[in-house]
Design a protein around this nucleic acid. Structure first.
Lengths: 340, 340
DNA sequence: CCGTTCAGTCGAATCCATTCGACAGTGTTC
DNA sequence: GAACACTGTCGAATGGATTCGACTGAACGG
């Protein structure tokens, strides 16, 4: 492989001069600089990452922790990943994708070996055991997902409480007075998906203060169970005219369920979901939904992280908790309830 | 950070002795070895990756190239990624996820900077311009997807020709004599998705030799266009009793289309697809399908790649082209045609 | 009892890029 | 014309792990 020594030799200068010509950290005459640049182009020189990391203790690599959990809906994950890798690349960083079962060990391994300059964690749980090691490590960390204790870390998430209220408000404004909220399976919640609770609790509070009946259920996240669940909920509440979905699998299954019951949205039932736009577009019935803004969250997380790395902000300096405001994207599945 | 010097000092030995105690490359007395191990555990020593890479010219990192193309179906991608990262980790490697627009540049950058020991390329096109630089680089490469010229690289892919024949054969065996094959959009093919042609051509050949009518169409890959496309195809061929889908979007849209036409599978129309099992499970009607075996392909690619890295097989030594045999997973959407 | 062998250990060199201190040469200023 | 300030370069040190060659001391054979 070609080293800076080869470049220096080809340009007829010392290694240090070649280095300064490339970094611009000391003034080098235009002619010499040009000769160095020519040599670089001709020989195809790219600095050895290991040597540079060793010397500068910066790798220009970010660790991206993504846990691929069986029953959470996968397509959403890819959007987060894409948001992170693209943004990182724009800022001159590569991304190490970590799907280790042992998240705690992986944090320590990568931090101690100085393989990465910082950490992005997706899918952060309420009581995530990766956070403690992350706080003790010199590299900064950014989270997508709000944990119980966000101290010492930058956090980015959708505002799930506002989302819950917004769903109820939208339906209320259209005239609905009895609704069903379908959440993700309880084991998702147990694994730390507190956002499910945050949305549901906020929705219930709002419903109560508006004098609305809101029936809350957990449901499976995949076929065929989820279809049966939906039938059960609809059977149990014949007076409900609106369906709020915080469960991708339910959105996927709903078209078949509506078909089987001879119902249409929004004529017979108004529907609003909470999941990503890309997800919404691929389904056979495009339901209105609050976008989970996956790529935006990934973007923000990386920007903040890189800011901390390069600004070398003290790890102790004040941290962000940014909850982005929900927006309902109307795809025509919400309307006034049928005249009773 | 703690270095091997710290470990050596704590154990009361020289740096080289500590290194040999850990690597086992020279015999070291049991007592000394134990002291070194204790010091490592106590201090939490992990070798500095940059220093090790510099010295050994091995990084234990693989580059994974995944292009997130708008109209290819994303969920499938995640399965490939998972297969690769998990397998890499099992073998002691980390994975650098590259979604660079400039694939050629990224190959050269990562190879020259010695950031990675090898390359895995997903979504390889018929005439993929990343292959040429990849061949010229010292690190080995493994492809998922069969290009026109696979020389110098290890290739893993589903056997799409066998898949095309199998779809036709299955339907033929059930008694179907007129079928519609729906492929991915033509621009996917143009971008190099030759697998679309390989499947379609093989299916057409087989149909011809069995004396079956097979209508072949390209269709859009997302809503709402794909729904209209399907209606058009079914309108054009009222006698067709079987639908072969090599297009995930079509599978996603089909339930609504069937509903609209008052049809059911398999009573009125038999359906078989070609996509991943995970994908199939999330859709509102579970159609029978040939699994794309994403995780298996990723696994094989990584095993082969690591074998080449560690066995330091000559880059010129014989390369593999492994096409894995298709299997139809029956989910009940195929049956004999309705009695005419 | 001397010479040989070998297990066990250490010192020093190496991988490559970066950067500090030093220095030669030119130009500036009183 | 002497003192000073830059500019542009270079040499050498640095970062941390690995590994080759060399050395020590104990065991063993004759």
């Amino acid at each position: 492989m070609v080293t800076i020594g080869d470049v220096a030799k080809a340009a007829g200068v010392s290694r240090s001069t070649a280095s300064y010509a490339l970094s611009g950290k000391r003034s080098i005459s235009p002619e010499v600089t040009q000769r160095v640049l020519d040599a670089v182009a001709e020989l195809g020189y790219t600095p050895n990452a290991g040597a540079r990391a060793l010397r500068t203790s910066q790798t220009r690599v970010l660790a991206l922790f993504a846990q691929f959990v069986e029953d959470e809906f996968a397509p959403a994950m890819l959007e987060y990943i894409k948001g992170v890798t693209d943004t990182a690349r724009e800022l001159g960083y590569d991304t190490l994708l970590v799907s280790d079962d042992d998240g705690v060990g992986a944090v320590q391994r990568l931090a101690r070996s100085r393989m990465v300059d910082g950490f992005v964690l997706l899918n952060v749980a309420e009581d995530d055991d990766r956070l403690e090691p992350l706080r003790q490590v010199p590299q900064p960390g950014a989270l997508v997902g709000l944990p119980g204790d966000p101290s010492g870390l930058d956090v980015f998430d959708l505002d799930f409480e506002a989302s819950g209220r917004m769903m109820v408000d939208e339906m209320h404004a259209l005239g609905h007075r009895e609704m069903i909220l379908v959440s993700q399976p309880e084991d998702v919640v147990e694994r730390g998906g507190a956002y499910v609770w945050r949305l549901a609790d906020a929705a219930k509070d709002r419903a109560a203060s508006l004098g609305i009946e809101l029936h809350h259920y957990f449901a499976a996240s995949s076929q065929p169970q989820i279809g049966e669940d939906l039938h059960r909920f609809l059977d149990a509440h014949p007076g409900a005219t609106a369906l709020l979905l915080n469960n991708e699998g339910a959105a996927a299954a709903l078209p078949a369920v509506l078909h089987a019951r001879g119902l249409s949205a929004p004529e017979d039932l108004s529907v609003v979901g909470r999941y990503s736009d890309v997800f919404a577009r691929t389904f056979s019935l495009p339901f209105s939904a609050i976008d989970s803004a996956a790529d935006r969250l990934g973007r923000h997380a990386v920007h903040q992280l890189v800011g901390r790395i390069e600004g070398s902000l003290d790890k102790a300096s004040p941290h962000t908790v940014e909850l982005i405001a929900p927006e309902v994207h109307d795809r025509g599945s919400m309307a006034a309830p049928p005249a009773a």
